[in-house]
Design a protein around this nucleic acid. Structure first.
Lengths: 176, 176
DNA sequence: ACTAACATGTAATCTGTTACATGATTGA
DNA sequence: TCAATCATGTAACAGATTACATGTTAGT
């Protein structure tokens, strides 16, 4: 997220923190104690550069810039998004938020395709022995709620993904 | 999750781990190095008891039991669910999975109501200065996707929650 | 005068992940 | 005999959270 927001232009740490919390904080706020050390690790690793603004009356404030190396690192993470970045909805959203930064359309589609492949597997949270229970078989109303809302979310995202990935080559022919 | 599954009956650590990964692992698998230390912390704190099964040929296996204290701790966490347990969808699902264990219907409804209050606020991930952008104003197709799918998920859950919380007292009177 | 927002940082503590380590049982 | 599943554990490292700590600027 830090690399992504800075790819859009230099920012102060404070403004970066605000944007991060807006994108992710609806579920879970990211604290200062998480963000500032993370920024400093990225500076230490050469992904970011900071220009200190001394001379102004305010507390030393800094502007953060993405280096060429940081930019390459970001593209690599987007390109290679897999594992939790694909399966965890909140993490996938972060990937999506910056996916436009990947210049290669083929690579962008590959990321969406991986998410689609993952979502194409049916969800199952509760089991009888090893058989996944269908919503109708679950008597607990709250567990039913989990299944119902998870499935609605999954369907909505699948619809969007299929629309993005576009009609298959066969349907394209049919449509014309 | 540990307390919740054990409230349904004693389990071996291994079976507990399987159930935890089924409920939560679709997004993110929980590793042994997370689960076993967590179980041992709960034993140390008096929430769980273990009975070792020696004498069998297999590797020492243990059965975990929820203590009265652990049960009370679980109910307290369910009752008092707030903060991230309400705002983070994945965490709220865990709360939901065990909410039936709360005997008081009034308390259960209060938990659902807190989630409803949270979801009732409109979602906004991207901003122009301080004004949240509507889906139509966002040109980036992937960011549009975030908004579109997040809103569909939110609507589905709101529908379920409103249905659960049921007709208001006024409509109940109307229905009779 | 006070509050909110701006602006950054550290330390203690806790928790999670990964990798490593061990060993039994069951079925192909 | 080989692989998968059962079954549990530790150690090193990384990362997150909370609380504390400091100070400015702008508006009421």
């Amino acid at each position: 997220m830090i690399l992504g927001f800075l790819a859009e232009g230099p920012l102060h740490g404070y403004e970066l923190r605000r944007r991060m919390n807006r994108l992710h904080g609806y579920a879970r706020a990211i604290s200062d104690g998480t963000i500032y050390p993370a920024i400093n690790r990225l500076i230490a690793s050469g992904a970011l550069l900071q220009t200190l603004e001394t001379g102004r009356g305010a507390t030393t404030r800094r502007t953060l810039h993405l280096t060429e190396r940081g930019h390459e690192q970001l593209l690599q993470r987007l390109r290679a998004a897999s594992g939790h970045d694909i399966t965890d909805g909140a993490r996938f959203f972060i990937v999506l938020a910056f996916l436009s930064l990947l210049p290669d359309d083929f690579e962008r589609r590959a990321v969406l395709q991986r998410r689609l492949d993952f979502l194409d597997q049916p969800v199952g949270f509760f089991f009888d022995a090893d058989r996944p229970l269908r919503a109708a078989e679950i008597t607990d109303p709250y567990r039913q709620g989990i299944l119902v809302t998870a499935r609605a979310a999954r369907r909505a995202e699948l619809t969007w993904l299929r629309d993005q990935l576009g009609p298959t080559s066969r349907s394209v022919r049919e449509q014309t």
